[in-house]
Design a protein around this nucleic acid. Structure first.
Lengths: 149, 149
DNA sequence: TTTCGTGCAAAACCTTTGCAAAGTG
DNA sequence: CACTTTGCAAAGGTTTTGCACGAAA
């Protein structure tokens, strides 16, 4: 095979995610498939409400979106982002490829930073005896276009 | 003068914080003084409810705690932490000395990491034209004693 | 068929807001 | 005195829960 960066082919990434659902004894339902399809293509992190809005014509209840997002985050298919504004956002977890965001304090736009500097901190935590170590890192600022105004 | 690490002397740190309130035209009230006194001594980050519980015998309403925490965070006297559990926590801001936390997913204990690795990310954000750049970085894991069980 | 997911409604939770009274500079 | 802060109650917004019905394996 060439490379298996699910990242590169949306369909493959989606299939992989669905396999992961089955592997964790989670049912592959219509709402979940619809949610994943959106999250694979539009990579920006979305809140439950936002994602529900993108599901054509009320494909399911918002509560189902909340429950599915949580379930899929727990098995590592999604990643939860916290921008400190009281709303959780989720994005598709493209494997080990870790990245972060810059969030504009004014217009709330999100820019992806394709690198991670927290590996050393995670290593330190493991040395201290912590297990299942993870982290959240978000950068905030006023984006160029908001600053211009 | 020797060194002016307000960090070293609780009273000095508190006095400095109170000066900062006045400098920003915020009133120095009993609730605020009481809250600061606690936050200067017990450095762990506290939620509004937790802090209110520490104020002896209902010194003020919880709403006042919420409002004061927010006001003091805005002028840089406090720092707001977000551990991703839906509750904001605040800690005294000891100057430029930036640090982070390891939060146990099980017992919610908080351990302070006295270093910061995100400077390069902030620098990058500034190079991209962002202004007033800041960040949040928290590490999560299962602490040694919880892992043992 | 057995187990899990869903919809609806209602609750829970943390945080914010409105307004009159009280406190600060 | 002018202005901010407080208390109380009530609202706000997001997320969670209970339970009967429906869907997946």
């Amino acid at each position: 095979m060439p490379h298996d960066h699910a990242h590169d082919r949306p369909d493959a990434a989606l299939a992989k995610a669905i396999d992961k659902l089955r592997a964790h004894d989670l049912r592959v339902t219509e709402p979940r498939k619809a949610m994943l399809a959106i999250l694979v293509q539009e990579h920006g992190p979305f809140s439950a409400e936002e994602l529900h809005g993108k599901l054509r014509a009320k494909e399911c209840d918002v509560v189902t979106v909340y429950r599915s997002l949580q379930a899929m985050e727990e098995i590592g298919v999604l990643r939860r982002c916290d921008f400190g504004d009281g709303t959780y956002r989720y994005e598709f977890n493209h494997g080990e490829h870790h990245h972060h965001h810059i969030i504009c304090r004014t217009c709330r736009s999100v820019h992806t930073l394709d690198l991670c500097v927290a590996d050393s901190l995670e290593r330190l935590a493991r040395q201290m005896g912590y297990q299942n170590v993870s982290h959240t890192l978000e950068v905030f600022g006023t984006c160029p276009s908001c600053a211009a105004k």
